[in-house]
């Protein structure tokens, strides 16, 4: 019993504050990536750290605590999306928000700029339209570079489910864009 108590010991305030300082920005970006809504993201951000505090004893691979936190963040964000009525609205909103940084990109020619803007806008629009679970898969795989095995482990699902989600997410993102042979993206093997 004593051993069990020790195993479930929670971090001190100083320890948890350091974790918070290190991962605050990452967790906020993660939950915002899923929700695209600052109010939902704020709620999910807070709950992610509360869950993390209560479950720190479960972390076995200390070097992957960021990956572990990100999966809590995405799960929590998806839960908040589900709780909100009419959540489908969220999936198509916010394109005007993205416009503001299209102009920041540097282009070598007008043709590149036009094509590039269209493609980038298409990509952003498609990500916005992805189901949250697919967006989660894209985030964990391509931004945080988790392996299939890690995603399955942390999300507590089968590897085959993770692969299926990634395939579907990629197919949606590639659709239409892929018709033009120059415009293929997110290729490669799922490993």
């Amino acid at each position: 019993m004593f051993k069990k108590f020790l195993k479930k010991a929670k971090p001190t305030e100083a320890e948890f504050r350091l974790l918070y300082e290190m991962f605050y920005s990452r967790v906020y970006r993660d939950v915002y990536f899923i929700t695209r809504d600052s109010h939902l993201a704020q709620d999910a951000l807070q709950e992610t750290f509360v869950k993390a505090y209560n479950n720190m004893y479960r972390v076995e691979d200390k070097e992957r605590i960021g990956a572990w936190l990100s999966t809590i963040a995405t799960r929590t964000a998806i839960d908040y999306l589900r709780r909100r009525k009419g959540s489908s609205e969220i999936l198509t909103e916010d394109m005007t928000h993205n416009d503001k940084y299209l102009s920041d990109y540097q282009w070598s020619s007008l043709e590149d700029m036009v094509e590039g803007n269209i493609m980038k806008e298409e990509l952003f629009q498609k990500i916005n339209q992805l189901k949250p679970e697919y967006r989660e898969a894209i985030l964990l795989k391509y931004i945080h570079e988790l392996s299939i095995n890690e995603m399955a482990q942390y999300l507590e699902m089968k590897e085959s489910t993770v692969k299926t989600r990634l395939h579907r997410a990629r197919n949606i993102l590639k659709k239409d864009i892929e018709k033009d042979p120059k415009r293929s993206w997110i290729g490669g093997e799922i490993s």
């Binding site: 906020y28 970006r29 990536f33 600052s38 993201a41 704020q42 940084y101 985030l139």
Partner: peptide
């Protein structure tokens, strides 16, 4: 994709 990820509204 990274740009999309990094572009967030203020909390």
């Amino acid at each position: 994709l990274r740009e999309y990820y990094d572009n967030v509204e203020e909390p």
